[in-house]
Nucleic acid binder design. Structure first.
Length: 311
DNA sequence: TCCCAGGATCAAG
DNA sequence: CTTGATCATGGG
C-alpha cells in the first residue's frame, strides 16, 4: 500500500489486554480465508458502509506493550473526517475481538491444568469474528472433511471466479466474496470443476438458493438462543454440528459455541477423559459446560495447542 | 496404494 | 444415541 492510502492508529483504549496478532492470524481459526501476509502485515478486503476497503494490520512491540496500526486504501480519496475511518476502527475492533477480556479468561481458568498450559505460549491469541454471514457460512461448509490449506484455496478460487473484482486507487485489484445470487445460479458441476470443492458444490448452491429465495434468513439467527440458532442451521444441507458451531462462533460471534473437529475431539478425549472413548456430541457438551461463555475461546486455544503438536 | 484433512448424511444396530 | 460406508479433492 502506498501514498494513495492512509494510515490509522488503533486507539490503545479499545484493546482489552494482550494481543498476539501473528498468532491470531495464523491460528487457522476463522470461517473465512486466511488473510494475506506480507512481512508483519496482514491484509484483508472488506466492504465497509458500501465502500470496498483493503486494509493491512501491523502490530509493533510485544504482546503486552504494543501499538496497532491499520494501513488502508479504498476506491476513492479519503478525507480526514471521512466516515470510513470510524468504520474501519470499529471493524478492526470487532474482527480481532479487541474487547474480549483475555485477562479474565486466563484468571478464570488458571486452575484448569490442561488449558492453563496453553496460556503462556498463546497469550494474546484472540478469537476473530467474520463480518459477512453468507461468506462465513459458505466457507464453513467448504471446511468439512477438508484441510485448512485446501479450503482456503477453494475459497480464493470461489472469489476469483465468481466475486466482483474491485480496483483500488493504487491500481491493485482484488476479488470480493461472491453474492448469494451469483452462486445460486450456478450449476454445481461447473462450480465443482472450477474450484475443486468436490461434493461440497451441491450444498453450496442449494444453501445459496435457500438464502436468495428467503427460505432461510441468516439475519434472524441473531435473535435466537444458541440452541435454537444451531437447530435452525442444522436444517441446511451440508451443515452438521461442527459446521454449525463453526459458523456460530467465527461467523456470528457466539462465544458459547465450541466446534468439535478431529483435533478438538482428539485432545479433549486425551486430556480430559484419559483417552477414553467420548463422542463428539459429548465433547461439545463438555466444553460448553466447563467453559460456558468462554467455550469458543477454550476451543480456539485447545485447537491451536493440539494442531501444533504440543499435545 | 492407502490414509488423512477443522464432516455430513444415511442406513442399521 | 451410536457405528460404518460413502462422498471429491489434493497432500503426504
Amino acid at each position: 500500500m502506498n501514498s494513495q492510502g492512509f494510515t490509522l492508529p488503533i486507539p490503545k483504549e479499545l484493546v482489552n489486554g494482550p494481543l498476539n496478532l501473528t498468532e491470531t492470524m495464523l491460528s487457522g481459526q476463522t470461517a473465512e480465508p486466511e488473510w494475506i501476509k506480507e512481512g508483519a502485515e496482514f491484509t484483508e478486503v472488506e466492504v465497509l458502509g458500501g465502500v470496498p476497503v483493503k486494509y493491512g494490520l501491523v502490530q509493533v512491540g510485544d504482546v503486552d506493550d504494543f501499538s496497532l496500526e491499520a494501513k488502508a486504501i479504498t476506491v476513492r480519496q479519503i478525507t480526514p473526517t471521512d466516515e470510513i475511518i470510524g468504520n474501519l476502527i470499529d471493524h478492526v475492533t470487532r474482527v480481532l475481538g479487541l474487547n474480549d477480556d483475555l485477562a479474565l479468561f486466563y484468571r478464570e481458568f488458571a486452575e484448569d491444568q490442561v488449558i492453563s498450559t496453553t496460556f503462556r505460549n498463546l497469550r494474546g491469541l484472540r478469537l476473530m469474528r467474520g463480518t459477512e454471514l453468507f461468506k462465513a457460512l459458505i466457507c464453513s461448509i467448504l471446511s468439512q472433511n477438508n484441510s485448512v490449506r485446501l479450503w482456503n484455496r477453494s475459497a480464493r478460487l470461489l472469489m476469483k471466479h465468481y466475486g466482483r473484482n474491485v480496483i483500488f486507487l493504487d491500481g491493485s485489484h482484488e476479488s470480493l466474496f461472491p453474492q448469494p445470487e451469483t452462486l445460486a445460479k450456478l450449476n454445481p458441476r461447473e462450480l465443482r470443476l472450477k474450484t475443486s470443492i468436490g461434493y461440497r458444490a451441491k450444498p453450496v448452491v442449494t444453501v445459496s438458493r435457500m438464502i436468495v429465495s428467503g427460505e432461510f434468513d441468516l439475519n434472524k439467527l441473531a435473535g435466537e438462543s444458541y440452541e435454537n440458532a444451531k437447530d435452525m442451521l442444522l436444517e441446511l444441507p451440508g451443515v452438521g454440528p461442527k459446521v454449525a458451531d463453526c459458523f456460530l462462533l467465527y461467523g456470528a460471534g457466539r462465544l458459547e459455541a465450541a466446534p468439535v473437529d478431529v483435533w478438538i475431539h482428539r485432545i479433549v478425549s486425551k486430556q480430559y477423559f484419559g483417552g477414553g472413548k467420548v463422542s463428539r456430541m459429548k465433547t461439545a457438551a463438555f466444553l460448553r459446560e466447563r467453559f460456558h461463555e468462554w467455550a469458543g475461546y477454550a476451543q480456539l486455544y485447545l485447537f491451536d495447542y493440539a494442531r501444533t503438536e504440543k499435545a
